[in-house]
């Protein structure tokens, strides 16, 4: 019975901790399917998380906080798009820089607004989301899936990442498609950050994402750049996370506590193995990372 209860608990917390991952991974999926590498997910999440906490604090409304996250994420994504789509900066270099920027800007703003560079003031329980983000993240999954599969613009996104010249010669502006994908990517990643700061925790704190943006990226690759498998990967990684939290300090065998480090690195290890073709094959969109130059 106790076993069952802890099973339910783990299931519940799996759903909860995989929410930010799912948002961010969906964001990454849109951007990468359109041909823009997005290792700036981490930074987008940070900015979104901060925006959510700040807006929720000042408006006393978590919903407004969520919109704040979307807005901040989009703003950050627009800057990112400016560099990688228009100015043709290397997408990996720019992504790294944007992660640094977010890691620097968030404590900077916290210091300015709240005179603390470590965390924002705590939100009372009623100003945090209870379950909403979990549901919304799965709705987003459905929307992204249907959009890519059934609509013209979804088809354009997919072809922008595979053969942008084909899209261009069909009279559709590749850059515009990529812009929209990247901005949506920022919105979703921003929501991912929000579900950290005003759903799973009660405030935004310094470097709160702790690599979740990269884990989302890993889930995206593990999910072969497809929405549903990516969501499953997020659940799996969320499960590892939930398990790891639960096993912290627990002695299962012998006298030493379980070395949770091994569970922590599992998502990353699995991703390396998947990419190496040891566990299935994962193929990136063909034109991923190649800036498009209209003639």
């Amino acid at each position: 019975m106790e076993f069952l209860a802890s099973g339910v608990q783990i299931f519940e917390s799996t759903l909860r901790v995989s929410t930010p991952l799912l948002f961010a991974a969906l964001g990454g999926l849109l951007s990468e399917r359109s041909g823009v590498v997005n290792i700036a997910l981490e930074g987008m999440m940070l900015i979104g998380g901060f925006g959510a906490a700040a807006v929720a604090l000042s408006t006393q409304s978590p919903v407004a906080g969520a919109f704040g996250a979307i807005f901040c994420g989009a703003l950050f994504a627009i800057l990112y798009g400016l560099f990688v789509i228009e100015l043709k900066a290397d997408q990996i270099v720019a992504g790294t820089a944007f992660n640094m920027l977010a890691a620097g800007v968030t404590p900077f703003l916290m210091k300015v607004f709240y005179d603390s560079s470590t965390s924002t003031p705590s939100l009372p329980l009623e100003l945090r989301f209870q379950q909403g983000p979990v549901w919304i993240s799965w709705v987003c999954l459905g929307l992204v899936w249907a959009w890519l599969k059934y609509t013209p613009s979804g088809l354009w996104v997919r072809i922008a990442g595979e053969h942008p010249e084909a899209l261009d010669s069909a009279g559709i502006r590749v850059k515009r498609v990529r812009w929209i994908s990247v901005i949506l990517s920022g919105c979703l990643a921003g929501l991912g950050g929000a579900s950290l700061s005003i759903f799973l925790a009660s405030s935004f704190s310094r470097n709160m994402t702790a690599g979740r943006g990269f884990m989302a990226l890993a889930a995206l690759i593990f999910g072969k750049w497809k929405p549903v498998p990516t969501a499953i990967a997020c659940l799996l990684f969320g499960f590892f996370d939930a398990l790891q939290i639960r096993l912290q300090g627990v002695v299962l065998w012998g006298s030493e506590p379980v070395p949770v480090q091994f569970i922590q690195v599992l998502p990353y290890l699995v991703t390396v193995l998947v990419l190496a073709g040891v566990v299935g094959q994962s193929k990136a969109p063909r034109s991923l990372g190649v800036p498009f130059q209209a003639n």
Partner: peptide, 9 residues
């Protein structure tokens, strides 16, 4: 960090 990021960009 901000300065670094801006210089890279």
């Amino acid at each position: 960090l901000i300065l670094q990021a801006l210089v890279i960009l």
